[in-house]
Design a protein around this nucleic acid. Structure first.
Lengths: 125, 125
DNA sequence: TTCCATTTTGACAATCATTTTCATTTTCTC
DNA sequence: GAGAAAATGAAAATGATTGTCAAAATGGAA
């Protein structure tokens, strides 16, 4: 396994929030790494494909990534200001989504659920 | 009020699915309109700002729009193949999201919920 | 109606994240 | 160690979206 992918994984693990490829690239370069932007994108793509990191899209369409503790299906409570995220679960939501899909004759039903807000720390300032 | 915005609104209303700005532009040009791409973007922006149309992002980050029947808060069950969408509600999900946010000390909590699947028509073929 | 101000429009250029290309370097395998 | 395969990165290409700016449509006021 590539050393570069490991570098990117660690850069992500060092943060509790969602980070963009550009962010990670800037950080890595700032701390002296000679990694290329293309490689950061490739590493994130691979990590995301293998399910090791979660991806979501910001309102302006940028992809942001997070190394979550759980590899199991879960959702996120994300701070609108600092992007810190908490992993959350909602069995009721899972069932609701499946049921709604079935009721309308849809098959292979999946869903995306994200909760946004301002975290306590950010609200304080 | 502009005639162009009305044109775009109608192009959207004529479809049950989510459509991208580029799609709508292509359709309008195909049916003879001399509308410009910039104008299509501006109209969609305005319609979305005023809450008249709903927006969401595809997996590859493209913005897609839909003129929904209800202006009230709701979610969508979207076909992965043809992008047809059904407006759905989930009171339980609303409460769950608010409760989860509050429990973690988040304020100004909002959420996004979308359900995807293959609709009965598409499954048949 | 006519004229000026305001708004809308659209062609074109500029952005910006992401992907491709392709030649070079590194890593594995024998 | 040699050669094939995989990984890397610089630079160019892509594609959606936004900014610029001058021309065209619109809306009153005279």
């Amino acid at each position: 396994m590539s050393t570069r992918r490991e570098t990117v994984r660690q850069a992500l693990t060092g943060s509790t929030g969602f980070r963009s490829a550009q962010d990670l690239y800037a950080d890595l370069r700032a701390e002296g790494s000679k990694i290329g932007l293309t490689t950061v994108y490739r590493a994130l793509q691979a990590l995301s494909d293998s399910g090791e990191v979660d991806v979501l899209r910001t309102d302006d369409g940028e992809a942001v990534y997070r190394a979550c503790d759980s590899e199991a299906h879960h959702h996120h409570l994300v701070c609108r200001k600092c992007s810190t995220a908490v992993e959350i679960e909602g069995p009721a939501v899972e069932e609701w989504a499946a049921e709604v899909g079935a009721r309308h004759g849809f098959t292979g039903v999946t869903h995306t659920v994200e909760v946004f807000g301002t975290c306590a720390d950010c609200a304080r300032s």
